[in-house]
Design a protein around this nucleic acid. Structure first.
Lengths: 340, 340
DNA sequence: CTGAAAGCGCTAACAA
DNA sequence: TTGTTAGCGCTTTCAG
């Protein structure tokens, strides 16, 4: 019903052979002006559209098709994150002439990994089974934002541990000792690693890691609010808080301000992500910038290498981050100032 | 080099016919346990991957392939916008089992529209020529976020004019009369329409539209800053400003606060987009929410209808918006209050 | 339960 | 410049 006319019908209608029609479709120069015109006109008149599969099969030429899987997980999807990563892969795909097939899935909807040359998971969230399948089928795969130590699969992730350690260093340099943290969802690797890095750094610097100073959030605003309220109600109130995401950090600041605490004068806050909202916030946020677009780009490039057979063993990358200093932190020994 | 073994080789190695191999690939039940096992094992051993194009061609079954074109235009791409729209189309594509091919392009890179069943432009920015081509080739096409009055093409856009009028109404109801606007890029339809709607609404309410009260921005922060500074330096300073995007609105507020003006007590500001940043801003922003995800969803649904032959004439939709009231506006007759 | 044979719609030698 | 003739790799009747 959709596409019944084929090249033969066009050929007949135009009074030429299928070869000639094929030639004009493929812009092969060796067709007379006259036939060219006639064929084009016939194609348009009949509304003919070549069958892509037949073209590809016959010519043996086909772009590499890569599935870009975005977990349908509201948290990540709504955030700044997904688009930045997609952008990186998308621009690389354009450059390498790959077809990028985007799938937004909760991991349950049917995605046939057999149908593509390779797969990129923008994150692993909820797609563990899908990953098993691609691995099982031997389909070249890259997992972004989740470092899989054990599995023989390509990974490109962010070095969250080192990032968290740097944050602690920074805070310590400003004179803080009572540093708390509000974690992300610990089921998410990034969440866990940021906490690990934090704890490790605190310990190695002989700083107290009070149990009450570790509060568990889940990247959602309500969890951050609860955590911040608990933290700020403490008798031994921290002078600084490392929060696992910018969203949550901003919410933490809101709680502090509502309580009449000045930020950064009385409380320093560091976020994570460098979400654009961090820059424009009430108190521009000091945070950790992650190379998201770069991660997407690398993911596609690595997959391409593998597909071209130029690589065999899994590539595992841990990308460095950058601390972006804005105004949400302050040296402890400075006299609190009042603003305008 | 990539994929040399075919079904025949698998068949031979497994000691069965190609038909049988095909059957196990396609999970047709009528294969003996024994053969099934043997074939699967052989497939894995040889690392055989079926040729998708051959499969599709032979079976006549193929998913619809739809190109989702995202203009590579930093402004739009970086924003909240693109992902929301993609999300809408992506989820619909998943539901309808369409392949969504994402192209991030500046309109110049080679995109072969012949190779897909339909095209969705996430925006027209820079893709005018591409659109001409798809139209010329007779490929079903949907343009999002840009209403094309003349062209016989499906459009789903936001009703920016009415939205702007509503904003004026709202401000008038709060008692404002000296209302200014900072426009978006007027080369972008949304920018122009928001200005048009503003001017129209002001005139129809007999309110003064001072030339000095219309400042031209381009959706960029620097332009907003300049515009805001000019506006607030005026002798006849407006009591309210309608800004064409949330980003710019927030920058406007920053300028105002830096000048010592209180918002909303001394200056009301309305944005446009309902970008998440608007909610978490220093002064939570009253703004216009656009149904972006819905727009994406509709785009794909409409395209699907056309591809199924259930629709012929172009569909043109103008989606309504919603004013989200937060705290950046204030009644003029209220006594200014102090916060905190 | 299995296999032989006939295409799917198009391209690409090879002749003419 | 054009047409003839084989396939591309797989699925699918239709016999067995």
């Amino acid at each position: 019903m959709k596409q019944k006319i084929d090249i033969a019908q066009v050929a007949k209608a135009a009074g030429v052979s299928t070869t000639t029609v094929s030639r004009v479709i493929n812009r092969v120069a060796t067709v007379s002006e006259d036939n060219q015109r006639r064929v084009r006109e016939t194609i348009k008149r009949l509304g003919y559209r070549p069958n892509l599969n037949a073209q590809r099969l016959a010519s043996g030429k086909a772009n590499l098709t890569i599935a870009f899987v975005i977990p349908r997980f509201e948290g990540i999807f709504h955030s700044y994150y997904a688009l930045q990563v997609l952008k990186g892969s998308g621009i690389a795909a354009e450059r390498l002439r790959c077809d990028l097939l985007v799938h937004i899935t909760d991991g349950k909807t049917f995605v046939n990994p057999m149908a593509v040359n390779g797969v990129i998971f923008a994150d692993l969230l909820g797609c563990e089974e899908l990953l098993d399948r691609t691995l099982d089928e031997g389909i070249p795969t890259v997992v972004l934002n989740h470092y899989l130590e054990e599995l023989p699969v390509n990974c490109v992730a962010i070095d969250n541990r080192t990032a968290a350690e740097r944050v602690v260093d920074y805070l310590v340099r400003l004179g803080h000792r009572d540093i708390a943290t509000i974690t992300g969802d610990l089921k998410v690797q990034a969440g866990l690693d940021r906490l690990d890095g934090f704890v490790k750094a605190m310990k190695s610097r002989q700083l107290p890691v009070r149990e009450a100073h570790i509060r568990f959030g889940d990247f959602g605003l309500p969890s951050a609010r609860a955590a911040a309220e608990a933290l700020l109600a403490l008798k031994e109130r921290p002078t600084a808080i490392f929060v696992a995401s910018d969203d949550m950090a901003l919410e933490t600041i809101n709680v502090a301000l509502a309580k009449g605490l000045r930020v950064p004068e009385e409380l320093s806050v560091v976020g994570f992500d460098d979400n654009p909202i961090a820059e424009h916030a009430r108190v521009p946020l000091t945070t950790v910038r992650q190379p998201l677009t770069e991660m997407g780009r690398l993911g596609l490039d690595i997959l391409f290498q593998h597909l071209k057979g130029k690589k065999q063993s899994p590539t595992k990358l841990l990308l460095p981050t950058e601390l972006v200093e804005r105004v949400s932190c302050r040296q402890t020994w400075l006299e609190p100032q009042h603003h305008g």
